[in-house]
Design a protein around this nucleic acid. Structure first.
Length: 928
RNA sequence: GCGCGAUUAGCUCAGCGGUAGAGCGCCUGCCUUACAAGCAGGAUGUCGCUGGUUCGAACCCGGCAUCGCGCACCA
C-alpha cells in the first residue's frame, strides 16, 4: 500500500467488513485442539434470541474479545466459542403476544405449530444477533457456534437430568411455587422481583364460633393485603406468648363469607406487636402461612386457578379474576359487617420478571433440583480459590447465595425449551397424568419403555392392559441448559471429545454481576456435579452499561442504544475502544455518553478520533519510509541511535511490559488508556515531530545524514509496528489494516496471529526518560513564553537556556536542531550561569522550569506588561510552593520521622523553588 | 433489617499515603506539506461532611449524609 492510496481520514466501514470476511474465510479463529500452544478458552455468555443485541452485549463482547485476542498474540491456542440461548419464557412471551395480535392463541395453534414458529423466530433473531456479533469484530470460532437447543446440547441436558435424578438430586413433588399467571408457568425464586408498592391493609373481623367467652371477646381482627385469599383461610395464628389471646388458642372462628370453622393456633412466627397480633393463615397461598399450616396440620385449600382467576373453592367468587375478586370480597365483607377498617399500606409485592404481573404462590406439582449438595461442593471449591473472582468482592455475593440455598424449581409449563425426559406410565392412572401417576426418567422413549416394562410390565399384563407412556409435557428452566454451557458446548457428555480435553475447564468467564446467581452459580453447580471441577479458572465480573440518566440500559425500559448505530457512525473499533476505556475501574458500571437527538456520543467520537490519529501516524510513516518496511529496514544499530530514538525505544519497552501485564490481569481500561497516551502524547506529539528533520535530510544530504535518516526510519517503523500489535486486541480492524500497510504483508497473513513483540529490556533507561522529560518541559516553556509575548507562529526568535546542570545542558545542546524546529527558534544557546551573568540586564522574556532558566532576548519586541505578568505568575507559584515546603520542613517531626529520601527530596524542591523565586524577583527588578 | 458500591474540574471518570489527573467541553492563537476527527498555549477543584491514625490523608480507620444496587422481609 502506498501513502498516496491512503485518504486523509480513516473510513472504518469498508475496512472492518473486509477484515471480518478475510479472517473468517481463512479460518483464523478456528483452532485445532491438537495445535501447539497452551490452551486458552472462553465460552461467550450466549445472548437470548429475543431480538437484537444491546449495548450491554457490545460491552461484554469488547471485553472478551480484547482478552482472547491478546491471548492469541501471546501464542496461546485460543478457543472463543459463540452461541445463543433459547430463552424459553422470554421467547414464548414474545411469540404469544404476536399470535395474540393476529387474533389467535397458542392453544389454537397447537404445540407443534407453535414450535415451528418458535424455530422460525430463532432463525431470524439468532441471525440478527450473529450478524451483530460479527459486526463487532468478535474473534470467535463460528465453526463451533452453538445454540442451547441444538441436538448435541439437548443430549447433554437429558443426560444431566437423568444423572441428577439417579443421584436423588431431582425430585417431583407438590409445593408452593411462584406462579406467573401471565406466562402460565411456574418460575424460580430468582425470576421474582420484590417491588415496593402502595397497597392497603384491610382489617377483618372473624367471629368466634362459640360466641363471647368469659372475657367478653367474641371475635378476632386480622389484617391482610390480599383479601381474596381469605377464602382459603384454614386458621388464625397468634403468638404463643401473647396473653391477650392465650385462652383462645384451640378455639375456632367462623370464617366469614365461607362459613368454615377454622382453628386459632399459637405460632412463634407471629409478631404480637404488629397490627392486632392475629394472622389469618392461608397455607395454599402464602409461603409463611404454608409453614405455619404444616406445623399445625392445617388443611390446604387452593382457591385460585392457574390463570389467576378464582376457582370453584372460592364459592360465589369463582370465575372472578384475582383482582376483581379482591374488590368483591372487600365489598361483601363490608356489606356483611366484617370490615373493620382499611389503611393505606406500602409493602413489597412479588412481581414476575417476565410476565410483569404479581406472582401468585400456588400449590403445584413441579420438578425440583436439590441444590444444597451441589452448592456445598461449590462452597468448598471457593474456599480453595476456585473460581477466582475479579474483582474479588463478588466472591462474597456468590458464596452468600450458595449458603442457605433453596431448592430450584426447574419445570416450566411452556412449550419452547428442553422437554423434561420423564415419561408417565399413564396406563396406571386411566390414561391421564395425575400427581399419583408413576413415571420413569430416561434418555429417550425406548429407554423409558424398557424401564417401564421392567417396573410395571408384569402388573399391566396381569391387569390385562397395555403399557401406555406419555412424556411430561413441560420443559426445563432455560438456566438448566445454560448451566451446562461451558462443557455441553465442548462435547460433553462425550468425555473423549478432543475439544473438551483441550479446552475444559475454560480459562475465564466474563459476564455482568446481574447474573451471578442465575448463571455463574448454576454453571459451577452443574460443572461440579458432572465434571468434578469448576468450569472456569477466573470469573471476570463487569458492570452494566447505564444510559445518560444513569439508568440500566435494557430493552424493557426502552432506553437501549443500538450498538449498530454507533458502529455505523464511528466504526466498531471506536465503539470497542470507548467501551473498554471506560472500564478502567474494574467492576464499575459504565455510563455511555449519548445524545439521543443526534445519535452521537462524544466518548465514542473521541475514540474515533484516536483511530484517525493512528491512521495518520501510519500515513506519515508510509510517506517517509521510502517504500521500506520494518522487516526490510531491520533493527536499528544501537550505536547510531540518537537521544530521541533511545527515549522512544525505552518508552516502547516500558509500555509493552505494562500493557501485557494489564491485558493479562483484566486491567483492560488501564491498558487502553496507557496505549492511547503513548501513541498520541509520546509517539505522535514528540517522537514524530522530533524526527521530521532527520527523515528529510534534503537533496544534498551527507552520508552521515542519510545514515541517520535510516536510523530514524528504523526506529519509527519498529515503534509503529509494535504499537499496532499492542493495539490490536482493542482495535482489531484498524490495526490489521495499518499493519498490512506498514509491513506490506499479503492478505492471507494476519496481525491477529502474529506474536506479541518481545520486550527489549536493554532499551529501558529511567535516567534517560527523566532527562527527556526535562527537554520536553524546556520546549514547553519556550512555547509558553512565545504565546505570552504574543509572537506570531511564523516569527522567529532566539532562545537562550541557562542551566547549571551539566546533564541537562548536554541534552539541550544535543537537541538544538530539534528545539529550533519545535519552537521556531532562530538560534539556540545553552549557557552556564556564569556565562549568563555576563549578559544580565539584557531585556528578555524569562521563564523558569526547575533550575532551568529560559530566556528569549527580544529587544524591542517584548510586551513589557506580558513579561511582568508572566514573571509575577512564576513568582507567585514559587512562593506558594516555598510556603508549603518550608512549613513541612519546619515541623521537627517531619525531619525526624519521614523517610530520609522524602526529606531530601523536599529540601531539594525547596532550594529549587527558592532559586526560582529569586530569579523571578531579579528579573522583575531589572524591568523596573 | 443485613450487605455491597459510589460521592474528585461544567460533564464522564482515573488516581488509593508524599505538593491534585485524563477525555470531552471552555478560552486564546494557528489550515506549520501525517492528521482542523488536527496543532500550540491557557483557565478550571477547601477530592460529600465529620472525627481519628500518621511527620504527612483524596487515598487508611470510625461515624454521618446523599445516590445506586443486591439479599431478606410482618400479615
Amino acid at each position: 500500500m502506498s501513502a498516496e492510496a491512503l485518504p486523509k481520514t480513516y473510513d472504518p466501514a469498508g475496512t472492518e467488513d473486509r477484515w471480518q470476511r478475510l479472517w473468517e474465510e481463512a479460518g483464523a479463529f478456528h483452532p485445532d485442539p491438537e495445535a501447539p500452544g497452551e490452551p486458552f478458552s472462553v465460552v461467550i455468555p450466549p445472548p437470548n434470541v429475543t431480538g437484537s443485541l444491546h449495548m450491554g452485549h457490545a460491552f461484554n463482547t469488547a471485553l472478551i474479545d480484547t482478552i482472547v485476542r491478546f491471548q492469541r498474540l501471546r501464542g496461546r491456542n485460543v478457543l472463543c466459542l459463540p452461541g445463543t440461548d433459547h430463552a424459553s419464557i422470554a421467547v414464548q412471551t414474545i411469540l404469544e403476544k404476536k399470535i395474540q395480535a393476529e387474533g389467535g392463541s397458542k392453544h389454537d395453534l397447537g404445540r407443534d405449530a407453535f414450535l415451528e414458529r418458535a424455530w422460525a423466530w430463532k432463525a431470524e433473531s439468532g441471525g440478527t444477533i450473529v450478524g451483530q456479533l460479527r459486526r463487532l469484530g468478535y474473534s470467535v470460532d463460528w465453526g463451533r457456534e452453538r445454540f442451547t437447543l441444538d441436538a448435541q446440547l439437548n443430549r447433554a441436558v437429558v443426560e444431566a437430568f437423568v444423572r441428577l435424578h439417579e443421584q436423588g438430586l431431582i425430585h417431583r413433588g407438590e409445593y408452593l411455587v411462584n406462579w406467573c399467571p401471565a406466562s402460565g408457568s411456574a418460575v424460580s425464586d430468582l425470576e421474582v422481583e420484590m417491588k415496593e408498592m402502595d397497597g392497603h391493609l384491610w382489617h377483618f373481623r372473624y367471629p368466634l364460633s362459640d360466641g363471647p367467652g368469659p372475657d367478653g371477646i367474641d371475635h378476632l381482627v386480622v389484617a391482610t393485603t390480599r383479601p381474596e385469599t381469605m377464602l382459603g383461610d384454614t386458621g388464625v395464628a397468634v403468638h404463643p406468648g401473647d396473653a391477650r389471646y392465650a385462652q383462645l388458642v384451640g378455639k375456632t372462628l367462623d370464617l366469614p363469607l365461607v362459613g368454615r370453622k377454622i382453628p386459632i393456633v399459637a405460632d412463634e412466627h407471629v409478631d404480637p406487636a404488629f397490627g392486632t397480633g392475629c394472622v389469618k393463615v392461608t397455607p395454599a397461598h402464602d409461603p409463611n402461612d404454608f409453614a405455619i399450616g404444616s406445623r399445625h396440620g392445617l388443611p390446604l385449600i387452593t382457591v385460585m386457578a392457574r390463570n389467576g382467576s378464582m376457582n370453584e373453592a372460592a364459592g360465589r367468587f369463582a370465575g372472578l379474576d384475582r383482582f376483581e375478586a379482591r374488590k368483591a370480597v372487600v365489598a361483601a365483607m363490608e356489606a356483611e359487617g366484617f370490615l373493620v377498617k382499611v389503611e393505606p399500606h406500602r409493602h413489597s409485592v412479588p412481581i414476575s420478571d417476565r410476565g410483569k404481573v404479581p406472582v401468585e404462590p400456588l400449590l403445584s406439582t413441579q420438578w425440583f433440583v436439590k441444590a444444597e449438595p451441589l452448592a456445598a461442593r461449590c462452597r468448598e471449591a471457593l474456599e480453595a480459590g476456585e473460581p477466582r473472582f475479579v474483582p474479588e468482592r463478588w466472591s462474597k455475593v456468590y458464596r452468600d447465595w450458595l449458603t442457605g440455598i433453596r431448592d430450584w424449581c426447574i419445570s416450566r409449563q411452556l412449550w419452547w425449551g428442553h422437554r423434561i425426559p420423564a415419561w408417565f406410565v399413564v396406563s396406571e392412572t386411566s390414561g391421564v397424568i395425575t400427581d399419583a401417576t408413576p413415571y420413569v426418567v430416561a434418555r429417550d422413549e425406548a429407554e423409558a419403555r424398557a424401564k417401564a416394562e421392567a417396573q410395571f410390565g408384569a402388573a399391566s399384563e396381569a391387569a390385562g392392559r397395555a403399557l401406555q407412556l406419555e412424556q411430561d409435557p413441560d420443559v426445563l428452566d432455560t438456566w438448566f441448559s445454560s448451566g451446562l454451557w461451558p462443557f455441553s458446548t465442548l462435547g460433553w457428555p462425550e468425555e473423549s471429545n478432543a475439544d473438551l480435553a483441550t479446552w475444559y475447564p475454560t480459562s475465564v468467564l466474563v459476564t455482568g454481576f446481574d447474573i451471578i446467581f442465575f448463571w455463574v452459580a448454576r454453571m459451577t453447580m452443574m460443572a461440579g456435579a458432572f465434571t468434578g471441577r469448576m468450569p472456569f479458572r477466573d470469573v471476570y465480573i463487569h458492570g452494566l452499561v447505564r444510559d445518560e440518566n444513569n439508568r440500566k440500559m435494557s430493552k424493557s425500559a426502552g432506553n437501549g442504544i443500538d450498538p449498530l448505530l454507533l458502529i455505523e457512525r464511528y466504526g466498531a473499533d471506536a465503539l470497542r475502544f470507548a467501551l473498554v476505556r471506560e472500564v478502567a475501574g474494574a467492576g464499575q458500571d459504565i455510563r455511555l455518553d449519548y445524545d439521543r437527538k443526534s445519535d452521537t456520543s462524544a466518548t465514542v467520537e473521541s475514540s474515533r478520533n484516536f483511530a484517525n490519529k493512528l491512521w495518520n501516524a501510519t500515513r506519515f510513516a508510509l510517506m517517509n519510509l521510502g517504500g521500506a518496511t520494518p522487516a526490510s529496514l531491520g533493527e536499528p544499530d544501537p550505536e547510531s541511535l540518537q537521544l530521541a530514538d533511545r527515549w522512544i525505544l525505552s518508552r516502547l519497552a516500558r509500555v509493552n511490559r505494562e500493557t501485557a501485564e494489564r491485558y493479562g490481569s483484566y486491567g483492560l481500561g488501564e491498558a487502553a488508556k496507557g496505549l492511547y497516551e503513548f501513541a498520541w502524547n509520546e509517539v505522535c506529539d514528540w517522537y514524530v515531530e522530533l524526527i521530521k528533520r532527520r527523515l528529510n535530510p534534503g537533496d544534498t544530504a551527507s552520508p552521515e545524514a542519510l545514515a541517520d535518516q535510516r536510523t530514524a526510519r528504523q526506529v519509527l517503523a519498529k515503534v509503529l509496528g509494535e504499537l499496532l500489535v499492542m493495539l490490536h486486541p482493542l482495535m482489531p480492524h484498524l490495526s490489521e489494516e495499518l499493519w498490512h500497510g506498514l509491513t506490506g504483508e499479503p492478505e492471507g497473513t494476519f496481525l491477529a496471529l502474529q506474536p506479541w513483540p518481545a520486550v527489549d529490556a536493554a532499551a529501558l533507561d529511567d535516567a534517560l526518560e527523566a532527562r527527556f522529560a526535562e527537554l520536553i518541559e524546556a520546549i514547553r516553556v519556550v512555547r509558553n513564553l512565545r504565546a505570552v509575548a504574543g509572537l506570531k507562529p511564523s516569527q522567529g526568535a532566539p532562545v537562550v537556556f541557562v542551566s547549571g546542570r551539566a546533564g541537562l545542558a548536554a541534552v539541550l545542546r544535543q537537541a538544538t536542531a530539534e528545539i529550533s524546529a519545535l519552537t521556531r527558534a532562530e538560534s539556540v544557546q545553552v549557557l552556564d550561569p556564569e556565562a549568563a551573568a555576563a549578559r544580565a540586564g539584557e531585556r528578555c522574556l524569562a521563564g523558569v522550569s526547575g533550575e532551568l532558566q529560559v530566556l528569549l532576548p527580544l529587544e524591542g519586541l517584548v510586551d513589557l506588561e506580558a513579561l511582568r505578568g508572566r514573571l509575577a505568575k512564576d513568582l507567585a507559584k514559587a512562593e506558594k510552593e516555598i510556603a508549603g515546603l518550608a512549613g513541612r520542613l519546619a515541623n521537627p517531626n517531619f525531619a525526624g520521622k519521614a523517610p530520609p529520601e522524602v526529606v531530601a527530596e523536599c529540601k531539594a524542591n525547596l532550594a529549587e523553588a527558592e532559586a526560582q523565586a529569586e530569579l523571578a524577583r531579579k528579573r522583575l527588578a531589572e524591568l523596573g
